[in-house]
Design a protein around this nucleic acid. Structure first.
Lengths: 126, 126
DNA sequence: CAGTATCCGACACGATACTG
DNA sequence: CAGTATCGTGTCGGATACTG
């Protein structure tokens, strides 16, 4: 009868936003320098071994991060539109944490893959 | 035509496992000391502002982490079954990263909530 | 005790089309 | 250029029941 799904504490929500698939990439890209929307999109698309971001997901990710106070959205009132996204102080702190995690993951990736093979070999077919 | 969903690089998978809802809690709990299955379950259930884990999800989380080489599963051949879960060296490293992220999130949570209110106030009803 | 098996609803995500 | 709206589907995750 309960609400079941959706019962997340606010911390969980925040973590989901910053550790989400595109959240991670956005934070890391914006850590380097501010980006415009399409620019960010292209930067992410160019990232090796990462599929393309849809506009929808990028917009959604940026909105989550903006709402959480991680990202500043600076829309200059010109035509055609020119919007710059950058990290807030909070967002910068988040990026540091995320970057550390991402780098560690990359570092240990071969260990992890080795472990997976071993595990699968002993489990997949006894 | 492509597979669309599911096209994740292995790093992404690893991050999903360790940053997942229950992955985080398992890593943090096991960082303190080894736990048995039900013990771990109760420990997590007792965590404030976190809903209960189903057996399914806990088992699944532990298997992912074991497969990734983060968790050791030590099943003692006694009856009734006695299984101890502990962190590997790799898992300990992961726990350090995750713990840092979790602590940071907790630390900044009020800033985030404040940001959310501000955002919602200016967006939710202009 | 320590899981596995099955069913099922919610929603995250992608594809596509449209707008200021 | 920088998005929003809508739709379809695959997957996650919870509830429940069963097993060694």
């Amino acid at each position: 009868m309960a609400a079941s799904t959706g019962q997340l504490c606010p911390q969980r929500l925040t973590m989901e936003h910053v550790t989400s698939r595109w959240g991670v990439l956005v934070l890391i890209r914006l850590q380097e320098r501010p980006h415009r929307f399409a620019e960010l999109r292209r930067a992410i698309d160019a990232t090796e071994s990462v599929g393309p971001v849809t506009e929808k997901m990028l917009a959604q990710t940026l909105q989550s991060l903006e709402r959480d106070g991680m990202v500043n959205r600076d829309a200059k009132p010109v035509v055609p539109p020119h919007v710059e996204y950058s990290l807030t102080e909070l967002g910068h702190e988040a990026a540091v944490q995320i970057r550390a995690l991402a780098l560690w993951t990359n570092d240990r990736m071969d260990q992890v893959e080795k472990a997976r093979e071993t595990y699968d070999a002993s489990k997949g077919r006894a």
